[in-house]
Nucleic acid binder design. Structure first.
Lengths: 107, 107
DNA sequence: CTTCAATATCAAGATATATTGATTTATTGA
DNA sequence: TCAATAAATCAATATATCTTGATATTGAAG
């Protein structure tokens, strides 16, 4: 029940649904790229990403000081269905701004 | 997006997940039966049932002053998956107390 | 038409979640 | 070792959701 509610509450926020859609569209992204793309302050983004990770939707790969988030794979059946549902919503997403590429860390 | 979040937030509450499981197990029940089974005050139950109905999970059939709630059928794909997930949770539910059967309204 | 019973709605307070800005941690490179 | 940078965490406030008790609505029965 706890685990189910973690999964559900991870989805229960517009910002987080958009983040899932964005990562689904662009693959692995680091926090600062999402930050610049969404125009969102870092602490807010970091908190939402943690909730999505704890909810079983995302994985993190660290490369030095950078943290690359991506959709966890494979997703279990229910989370896959949730992702499929999100894909069908036709959410408008901001253009990707890859700030990290002016840096030098390669994933 | 709105519709999706209504669906998700309907699931985002332990009481409501239990109500879905209870109705899934017992079929159509009127409010007072759930009220006595769960030992929950009427206004609280009524509110949760409304949220589940608006979220697309339940239907209501009225018979005089009685309101019988049941799992809506057919559920769309995502909601079916959610129900399947809930069935797997092994939630402990209270025994059914059919207060309504001491009355005289037959569904 | 009045009363009663089942349910729905409303207003207030309690609890949980989200947002912000500041601080902390961890890693890199000088 | 020290400074700089990316990210995480914390504390305070803002916002949303849940719970309760009171009141309103609806239909049935006298």
């Amino acid at each position: 029940m706890e685990n189910f509610l973690d999964t559900i509450s991870a989805l229960n926020d517009e910002t987080r649904v958009k983040l899932i859609a964005f990562l689904d569209q662009h693959g692995a992204l680091c926090v600062c790229d999402m930050q610049s793309s969404f125009g969102m302050i870092q602490s807010r983004l970091s908190r939402h990403l943690k909730i999505l990770k704890d909810g079983g939707f995302l994985r993190v790969d660290r490369c030095g000081t950078w943290a690359y988030y991506s959709i966890r794979s494979p997703l279990d059946r229910f989370r896959s269905e949730a992702l499929a549902e999100i894909r069908c919503l036709g959410i408008e997403l901001p253009p990707l701004k890859k700030l990290s590429e002016t840096g030098d860390c390669k994933l």
